[in-house]
């Protein structure tokens, strides 16, 4: 017996079935299969897969959104830090500049004040010198007039009666005036030397 015969025997046991029908089934098998397959396909195309696709999309969107959000926050933080540092640097340079300006201004003020003070001092000294000179001259004039009168009066009182002889009298007065003049010249010379 060959193998196909065996199969035929086996098949014959349960009824008349050609094994080829397994692979080329009768119409009814196609018919019922088609109904079920269309049903399954419609449900999967219309309900199951779109729903799961939507869920997957939503999930990945959520994840991507989270990542994007974090990235955005990081960027904002970086930017804020940068701005802050820029502001800080600006403030520092401002402060340095202000300090420098103040120092310059202070120097200028001090220099100006010093110049003014020197000028004032020079002026005061000048005035004082001039006043002293004027007073000295006035004193010299007054002293000369007064000393002449006092001396004449004192001399006439001392010598009064003994000077009867008019010639002698004239000689004495001349000598006295000569002496007086010499003394005065010497005094004036000494006072000028001291001043210089």
């Amino acid at each position: 017996m060959s193998a196909p015969d065996h199969l035929l025997v086996l098949a014959a046991e349960g009824g008349e079935v050609d094994p080829v029908e397994l692979f080329l089934p009768p119409f009814y098998d196609w018919f019922w299969s088609a109904i079920l397959l269309v049903l399954i396909a419609v449900v999967f195309y219309r309900v199951v897969l779109p729903k799961f696709q939507a869920v997957l999309d939503e999930r990945s969107e959520l994840i991507e959104g989270g990542i994007a959000k974090a990235q955005h926050a990081q960027e904002a933080a970086d930017k804020a830090l940068e701005e802050q540092q820029a502001l800080l640097a600006e403030a520092r340079s401002d402060a340095a500049r202000t300090r420098e300006e103040a120092r310059e201004e202070g120097k200028a003020i001090v220099a100006e004040l010093r110049a003014k003070a020197n000028e004032e001092a020079a002026r005061i000294t000048e005035t004082a010198h001039r006043q002293i000179e004027a007073e000295r001259q006035a004193a010299a004039v007054a002293l000369r007039a007064e000393v002449g009168a006092l001396a004449t009066e004192l001399a006439s009182k001392i010598v009064g009666e003994s000077l009867a002889d008019s010639a002698r009298q004239s000689r004495v007065v001349d000598r006295f005036l000569d002496d007086l003049e010499a003394t005065q010249a010497a005094g004036a010379g000494a006072s000028t030397g001291k001043e210089g």
Binding site: L10, G15, F27, Y28, W32
Partner: peptide, 26 residues
Amino acid sequence: HVPSISEFFPAAILFGGTPFEFNRLH
């Protein structure tokens, strides 16, 4: 019981003999 090809074609439950035969497999 010997397995055979006929087991894949059980007796009809509904519409036996028509082109719309419905059996246990279906």
